[in-house]
Design a protein around this nucleic acid. Structure first.
Lengths: 132, 132
DNA sequence: CAAAATGATACTTTTATAGTATCATTCATA
DNA sequence: TATGAATGATACTATAAAAGTATCATTTTG
């Protein structure tokens, strides 16, 4: 099972790399060289990070991306929410027509508990904490 | 994110239903009527449960499936392992060529911790406990 | 104005999940 | 002992999600 998808993982690497020179404007090409992520995919990820206010973007010649937030303020859960949608473990698999026991479903309750734990952990993991 | 896939979920329902008449031999058709699972898919799931020693199978006319284990001895994690493969959260996404920091990867360590928690919870959830 | 960058967005490929189909085998029983 | 009703084995197809690609438009610098 994958908790983290590839784009989230790439985003982590990108940001952790960029923080090494926090005031540098990186172009997509710069990052391709260093991070081994295919150019168009990397571009997509950078665009998304920009839309979500994590990177600042400069268009045109000499443009590129600049880290906008402190790496200590970016949490794993944020990135997961951006790239993977709202984190949830406990949705009923039968969304359209959930099983008749949905309200009393014990399984759901236990999943909810695990979800709560994971959320609290993921909330605490800043990218900064991955570097120390 | 899905912790539990559809076949695992179906398996839970099947077993929880069968335990209501623990000595009855159920045919696939019996179960289709009650559980709203498409016949060929249900059949596949029953065959897998049989192969994994959770159901006893009787071939031929008047055949069918009989619960072989006590429902208190069947754990959610067992079913997940059967239908979804070994549970793991912390595998590196880059299996073929894992990232150079694989040994020192902090993220991996944190995932490992969460995995440990989930495993311990999943180990404790017997199907019986879902019915009480 | 041209070159070099991102913006927006649509498309394709790959993988995993979900579901289907079918022939072989077994067994009870008429 | 032949038949019908069940599972065994297994291969196939369809759908959805993840991963990756392509391309034209827009902006900016020199």
């Amino acid at each position: 099972m994958k908790l983290i998808t590839r784009d989230t993982d790439y985003a982590i690497r990108i940001l952790c790399f960029m923080v090494e020179e926090p005031n540098k404007i990186f172009t997509t090409k710069d990052l391709v060289k260093k991070l081994n992520i295919p150019y168009p995919f990397l571009r997509k990820i950078l665009q998304i990070l920009h839309k979500n206010n994590i990177l600042e973007a400069f268009k045109g010649k000499r443009g590129g991306f600049l880290l906008k937030k402190s790496i200590d303020e970016i949490y794993l859960l944020d990135l997961m929410n951006i790239f993977q949608g709202k984190f949830s473990l406990s949705q009923c698999l039968f969304k359209k027509k959930p099983c008749p026991r949905i309200d009393s479903c014990k399984l759901r309750k236990k999943l909810k508990k695990m979800e709560g734990y994971l959320l609290s952990e993921l909330k605490r993991i800043s990218l900064g904490s991955l570097l120390k």
